[in-house]
Design a protein around this nucleic acid. Structure first.
Lengths: 316, 316
DNA sequence: GGCGTTATATCGCTTTGGGTTATGAAACTG
DNA sequence: CAGTTTCATAACCCAAAGCGATATAACGCC
């Protein structure tokens, strides 16, 4: 005969509170209800759980043992409820994020840290990739959200895209780079400097190609490639190399890295950096919160960028 | 909204088995039943527990977490059932035994050891006492069974008495005691030897008095008293002292202690050594088993005693 | 891409368990 | 010994869970 965990929990509460009436009150039930539950449980167990005919209700040895187990069950149940609560509030869960490497490292990671200040039990699993791979992962459920630059008409039907920042790229160099002292930069100025190339399969790499073509350079010398953002930033800061980076990355990390953007207009891709989520699970609470949080963070970032530019313009 | 532990257990089983159908089979329920249980649970949780539209049913992150908790609940429930099973078979529980010191130490303890070979999870709590104290403890529920010598008309209404052995006492001495070489023993023979007295409030002490009066000795010299059986046996074995002991004790411990009984008939009290149990909890399984076990052990002991006496008689 | 297989969801119906209030019985308290 | 408290029982009702039958959706296979 199967015992019900519910009954054991009720037993535990009664033993803990020391009486049917108090136990029932603690459980939010009426006294007859728990009384009957106990007698049913006793019938199933086949032995009395409380000493018969005693006023301060005292559990039998078996009753006490079962109550201990019931208490542990109750605790686990409570844990489950807590988990659900936290999950509903988006404070717990797992967030599997994938994104283009540079933007993840340069902008998103810092925001994740900030997010986890308020959602400490959200476990973030970060991975890197580009559009096709991440679409596949989003569809087969091994990824919850992709963070990447996307053109509006690239958004698939089954996905929801939240744009965060304009995908504006700039040519970046170390602070104090010779070119930064020039007020106008020509192709001839740029030509002597070697380039740091992002991974060849990345959008940034194509952006680099297009940018250089747009300013007239067909050929460019690459002296470093394949590194992640940390390596790129180090090489950039320690040499006179140039590279193409999203302006947001340059701006966000300008305190930590010794990198600035050249005041050179390059063709910027018509894309938005944003969040891609499968439409049918857009409602997962932690995801929703993270989306809202990222949107807000990026609005702030954008505002700071705007502000900075105005200041710079006024000064310059 | 309260989650039911039952539901979490079902969820756990489904996740473990990898599907509704198999889970239902493992739970001994129909598939529609568990399907509906899950959908109800999802409604209460407010979030999907399984990825929608996937053939090898795959739990959500939340679903998996809740399933883990459900599994632990299920394990505890199983423990509870096992406990009940063992309790019903009398293999688990607590047995609070009280008894007269000499008989508990000399006879019962060895039998408890034997009993626990087959009922390893029965926890025996032994205490010592005499009739009045033990009656009170039996009545207030702090003792499950008393083991003591009792006259048939001393049995209270609310108690059940199972007699084990006749309460025959003998005068005991060390093996090889001078008196054992005599074929007939007179009062004068006994007189020189000192006595070991049991506790003054014990039945045995009164038995000793009566025994000595019955053979004509009004006065006796006590050189040791107040000890438990182990001390008495040591002193007895290491001196020419005499004492009164239940024959069963002398017989049962004759291999371990160097004690034998004098072939001297003394007035034996009209009592039976037996088990006293409160009538209304005579059905506790471990108690029932212990009662039956003790009865059987004592029958065997009695038979061995009978056999020995016949052999002795034939030889003598 | 259509089709069969298999697994899941839904429906209607019945039974059980648990919820309630009202009330009776038992045991502690003064 | 009466009053108070606490537990057990009765009568009733509804929610949940059981079942079989059946619709629907995914997957794999040709």
């Amino acid at each position: 005969m199967k015992l019900e965990s519910e009954h054991l929990e009720i037993l535990a509460m009664i033993v803990e509170k020391g009486g049917l009436t108090e136990g029932a009150a603690a459980l939010g039930k009426s006294q007859p209800s728990v009384s009957r539950t106990i007698s049913l449980l006793e019938k199933r167990v086949g032995a009395p759980l409380f000493e018969p005919g005693r006023r301060p209700l005292r559990p039998t040895e078996l009753g006490a043992s079962l109550a201990r187990l019931g208490g542990r069950i109750h605790a686990l149940n409570g844990e489950a409820q807590l988990l659900v609560e936290r999950f509903r509030k988006g404070q717990a869960g797992r967030l599997r994020l994938g994104g283009t490497p540079i933007f993840m490292d340069g902008v998103v990671a810092a925001m994740i840290a900030e997010f986890q200040q308020h959602h400490s039990d959200v476990h973030v699993e970060q991975s890197y990739g580009y559009l096709d791979a991440m679409l596949a992962q989003l569809r087969n459920g091994s990824l919850d959200m992709a963070i990447l630059p996307l053109h509006p008409n690239q958004i698939p039907q089954d996905m929801e895209f939240t744009s965060l920042l304009p995908g504006r790229n700039v040519i970046a160099c170390r602070v104090g780079h010779p070119l930064t002292r020039k007020s106008t930069i020509t192709l001839a100025d740029i030509d002597p400097f070697p380039w740091i190339a992002p991974p060849v399969d990345s959008p940034l790499y194509r952006d680099l190609q297009r940018a250089l073509i747009s300013i007239g350079s067909e050929d460019f010398r690459v002296n470093f490639s394949g590194g992640t953002f940390a390596s790129i930033a180090s090489v950039l800061a320690g040499s006179d190399s140039l590279t193409v980076l999203p302006y947001s990355v340059v701006f966000q990390t300008r305190k930590m890295t010794q990198i600035e953007a050249l005041p050179l207009k390059i063709e910027h891709p018509d894309r938005q950096l944003g969040l891609l989520v499968r439409r049918d699970q857009a409602s997962a609470p932690a995801l929703t919160h993270f989306k809202a949080f990222m949107a807000q963070q990026c609005r702030q970032l954008e505002a700071r960028i705007q502000h900075e530019q105005q200041v710079t313009r006024r000064r310059g």
